[in-house]
Design a protein around this nucleic acid. Structure first.
Lengths: 234, 234
DNA sequence: GCAAAAGTGTTGGTTGTACACCCATGG
DNA sequence: CCATGGGTGTACAACCAACACTTTTGC
């Protein structure tokens, strides 16, 4: 892990430019965000969004991806840039403009690796997060707003669910993200009408109620549909 | 003009970081974009998006605003950041990450001032623009896509129209931005139902057909409505 | 009168919402 | 049997697209 980062620190990094990332997860029907506890520096022992620096000859998207991989060990996730935050005094003592990203991942699949700049890393319920340092609160708000909007016109939410999921899980995901309650019968009809979910020929097991059908999202079906002018609109 | 910029060039600028901006306008029922012809440098005599540098102690948003004001002389416009573009080789010889903005303005009200790094500045029909240098083509595409989306859920389009406008002008604006045709009767009903347009007690003059009522957009009405939970959805 | 755009009215189909209802499974 | 969530049906209201139609103005 330290080895993997070694060349970043010996090679030049871009001055005055950093990356910060809001990593979303979904567990126990709640929307979660991954925070790290800083091991040193100005905000030692404070929880904050994970972040890092960009190497001189590294795409910013690659840099963001590298940070996430080092932190979560996860290789497959959804990663999208939000925007740059560049107020003069957002970072103390030194001028640092940060490029904010957000990522969607499946918490259960991965072990968190705090890494050498963080002493701890943990998932928090998004509603419980308060008092983040710097402008991280602002970045988190912006991330959530973007997620709320984007989830309505692109099927990115699936990146937060396990491979195989039930319709209720999907519904609860939307409810958690959008902070609304949805009608079950209407939700399933709406979703099914999109033809994006492929039944798994498999059902829940060991549940004390009628076992639900499992579905998976098929990106190829989605691509095919979008090619033909299909528009996902939740 | 040179005076106004003088302190930018004597003061430190942030290395490896620039700003580029897509400025949209609307003239003769067409969606336009403002390009500048570079007076010097690698792309001398080529048309490109206007851009510039950020001073060490200047908010990036302020920097973007300053660039626009120097170029167009306009003080009131809609300005929003898109995102950072940071591929390693997007700019030749030197690593430069650029923060892209887009702006909406009313072309007729302002004189273009090319400024000292540009020998010319002109409005182009957006469909006619091709072969922009660097990744400016990509930035332009991204800008237009964002505009297309945003215009559907926020009333930003009004920034492209004169103070007072007719419903047909508004319709043609949406048609130009979205590249679609709209039904006039249905469009006017849809818009009017939002209660965002205030009639001006004034009509078109000198037109060879029935004079249309002029309307203006009232931001205060909009703020009031959004406070009460109103959602603009075109 | 004619052309051109301003506006109003109507109608039929689609969609969304609310809610009643039956089904399967474990305890 | 009950509780719990799975899953279907229905009916009313709201909305939307299409298009016919009348109005006003300049030439």
């Amino acid at each position: 892990m330290a080895t993997e980062n070694h060349n970043i620190f010996t090679s030049e990094i871009i001055d005055a430019l950093s990356i910060d990332c809001t990593i979303f997860g979904f567990q126990e029907s709640r929307l979660k965000v991954l925070l790290v506890k800083h091991a040193e520096g100005i905000i030692k022992n404070q929880w904050a969004l994970p972040g890092g620096w960009v190497a001189y000859n590294e795409d910013i998207h690659v840099a963001a991806y590298r940070l996430l991989k080092d932190l979560t060990g996860v290789k497959e996730l959804y990663l999208e840039q939000l925007k740059a935050f560049g107020e003069v005094d957002r970072y103390p003592k030194k001028r640092v403009i940060t490029i904010a990203y957000y990522a969607l991942t499946r918490p259960e699949n991965y072990q968190l690796i705090p890494g050498f700049t963080a002493s701890d890393a943990r998932w928090f319920n998004i509603e419980d997060i308060a008092n983040l340092p710097y402008d991280h609160g602002q970045i988190l708000d912006f991330s959530w707003r973007r997620l709320k909007r984007k989830v309505k016109y692109a099927p990115i939410g699936f990146n937060l669910l396990p491979e195989k999921f039930t319709l209720l899980q999907l519904q609860e995901l939307y409810e958690a993200i959008l902070e609304i309650r949805l009608d079950k019968p209407n939700f399933r009809r709406k979703i099914m009408k999109m033809n994006l979910l492929v039944p798994c020929d498999e059902k829940q097991i060991g549940v004390s109620h009628r076992a639900a059908n499992l579905y998976h999202f098929d990106m190829q079906v989605y691509d095919k549909l979008t090619e033909d002018g299909f528009i996902f609109e939740f």
